[in-house]
């Protein structure tokens, strides 16, 4: 059994008129997502802006309630739980956000920030703040400083330390390195990897950067406009992707090697992702898909297993090496 499992998650947000505040439609932010995260595993969730990654993250951690579908953590459906029943679950399920500064209260010292999770849970700290800081590569004397005294990378380390304080089993990282410089990004990715080796953590790693996802994930799910279009083990996804969208994504990532960059075949998609207010019928990718056929407009492709552990939602999947 997986540590975290979702079935047919759906989330729709009402859309209101700017002036009249009247409900004029719905954003279909997440539309039928099945995911599973095993113990000690990292599930990478990639996709372009607005495809619903963060929404999935909020649903997984019950920061938001799904319109329909279930989230099971350790075998237990956490959907119907009340806030007080959720508290022990929250201990096991922690979050690291994209912008380290806006998620850290600027008026609290690092020591206060790192002991807050215990106070919220009504627990005695199990590990001195100094040890926690050392674990994420900071110095014990940093405990008495305020967030603005740190660089972006250091602040993100504090964010990670805070998530780790309660010894969670799963940490959701929502674009944890997107705001950081490449050199700092590498350090944070390494830190996440080390902590996993050390503490046996599971991660859900949300990012739009495919390189970062490849670096930390064991499994990867690719999202497009609220649906998962392909999920596979890391090597299968980066080596034998089968969905046209994954092909396009992989070919669009610039590689820091002029010979590779200039020589390779590029799939440049037409147009922009459609609005989730009014998603296309059938396959949601069909308006930009180079392989779209008539059936794609009529019939929505479901996630099908094309090889063990490799699932694709496309009528015409085709394994390709990028």
């Amino acid at each position: 059994m997986s540590l975290l499992e979702t079935t047919d998650l759906v989330k729709r947000y009402p859309v209101r008129h700017r002036l009249t505040r009247r409900r004029i439609g719905e954003v279909s932010a997440v539309d039928g997502v099945d995911l599973a995260v095993d113990r000690g595993e990292t599930l990478g969730l990639v996709g372009e802006s607005g495809c619903g990654k963060s929404t999935v993250g909020r649903l997984l951690t019950r920061l938001d309630t799904p319109t329909s579908g279930t989230v099971r953590f350790d075998g237990r459906d956490i959907g119907p739980l009340r806030e007080d029943e959720l508290r022990p679950v929250r201990r096991d399920l922690q979050i690291v956000f994209q912008d380290p500064f806006s998620s850290l209260n600027p008026r609290h010292t690092v020591r206060q920030l790192l002991s807050a999770p215990f106070r919220y849970q009504g627990l005695e700290p199990t590990e001195p703040v100094e040890d926690l800081l050392k674990r994420v590569g900071l110095k014990p004397e940093h405990a008495s400083r305020y967030p603005h005294e740190f660089s972006g990378g250091q602040a993100q380390r504090i964010g990670i330390a805070r998530a780790l304080a309660l010894r969670p089993r799963l940490v959701l990282c929502d674009e944890p390195v997107s705001a950081l410089d490449v050199s700092v990004q590498a350090q944070i990715l390494n830190l996440l990897r080390d902590l996993q080796d050390e503490l046996g953590l599971s991660y859900v790693f949300i990012a739009h950067d495919l390189g970062a996802v490849r670096q930390v994930s064991t499994r990867v799910a690719v999202m497009y406009l609220g649906v998962v279009v392909e999920s596979a083990d890391r090597d299968a996804l980066f080596g034998r992707a089968a969905h046209p969208y994954t092909h396009a994504l992989l070919s669009a990532v610039p590689v820091p090697n002029p010979d590779v960059e200039r020589g390779r075949e590029r799939i440049v998609l037409r147009g922009d992702p459609p609005s989730p207010l009014n998603p296309p019928s059938g396959c949601r990718f069909r308006t930009r898909c180079p392989k779209a056929a008539d059936v794609c407009a009529v019939e929505r492709p479901v996630l099908r297993e094309i090889a063990p552990g490799h699932r694709v939602a496309c009528h015409f999947p085709e394994e390709r090496t990028p």
Partner: peptide
Amino acid sequence: RGLLDCVPRVDGPLPHRLPTVEV
């Protein structure tokens, strides 16, 4: 060298840890 190597890539060999940059 560091700037080039520390970028996680979608192709090529996968290091367990990324090299870091010397300022």
